[in-house]
């Protein structure tokens, strides 16, 4: 399985995302923001960082990068897409996911190992976890406060589209303690904390993040079977 990782100007975590994909057992394919060909990848990761320096709004300029046209198009046909941190912001700006991410309520940039509860295991990126499983992965953001209007929040909650929630501490003021959400179909997932930084015990708080990448492999393989 080939999983594409997009590098925008200012992406930081593209290498770690590629490494996580490889550790999970897939082939990482580096994609460039200025291209408009997904090179036949089976899934796409939009990594963390500060694309375009976060100018204007986080993700607002990246949304119009040439590579986003086929991503938005194929996401509509079921291509699995995971946006991590800045990638989540790009997915919201692209309207692939509802809501928006605004400045942390505390005004501080937060960098910590964050406890999460996996709330939904029907998505392409969470199906390898157990429902309610608690995991710990790094969180690092300045604008991670998830907001949406009440109707959208009710719909996300009512349809099980909150895929992960902050446990113990809500680090950024996100509504409903939301750490990650999915689209209706479950192929597009946005997540503020960083699973790609928790795939090797030497360099992270554990290997709890691997499940996101194992999930998409499991999901792609089950699709491939007749």
């Amino acid at each position: 399985m080939r999983i594409g990782i997009v590098t925008f100007p200012g992406s930081l975590d593209d290498r770690d995302a590629a490494r996580a994909v490889a550790i999970a057992g897939a082939e990482p394919v580096m994609l460039w923001h200025g291209e408009s060909d997904l090179r036949g990848v089976h899934a796409v990761v939009l990594p963390g960082g500060f694309s375009y320096g976060d100018y204007l709004r986080c993700g607002a300029i990246s949304r119009f990068a040439p590579i986003m046209t086929p991503i938005v198009e194929q996401a509509g046909d079921g291509l699995p897409v995971l946006g991590i941190c800045n990638g989540f912001q790009i997915l919201c700006e692209s309207h692939l996911l509802p809501g928006a991410l605004t400045r942390n309520a505390s005004r501080h940039f937060i960098c910590r190992d964050q406890h999460l509860r996996i709330e939904d295991t029907t998505s392409d990126w969470t199906c390898a976890y157990a429902p309610g499983q608690q995991i710990t992965i790094p969180l690092k953001n300045g604008e991670g406060c998830y907001v949406a209007d009440d109707r959208t929040l009710d719909e996300l909650e009512g349809t099980g589209r909150v895929i992960a929630r902050y446990l113990q501490v809500n680090p950024n003021g996100s509504r409903l303690d939301i750490a990650g959400i999915r689209n209706e179909r479950g192929n597009v997932v946005g997540l503020m904390p960083h699973p790609e930084h928790a795939v090797e015990s030497l360099t992270g708080p554990g290997v709890d993040g691997l499940g996101f990448f194992a999930s998409v492999l499991q999901s792609l393989l089950s699709r491939a079977r007749p």
Binding site: T102, R103, N104, A105, S106, R107, C145, V147
Partner: peptide, 9 residues
Amino acid sequence: EILDPQGRA
């Protein structure tokens, strides 16, 4: 209705 932490600061 959106919290403005910069404004607060």
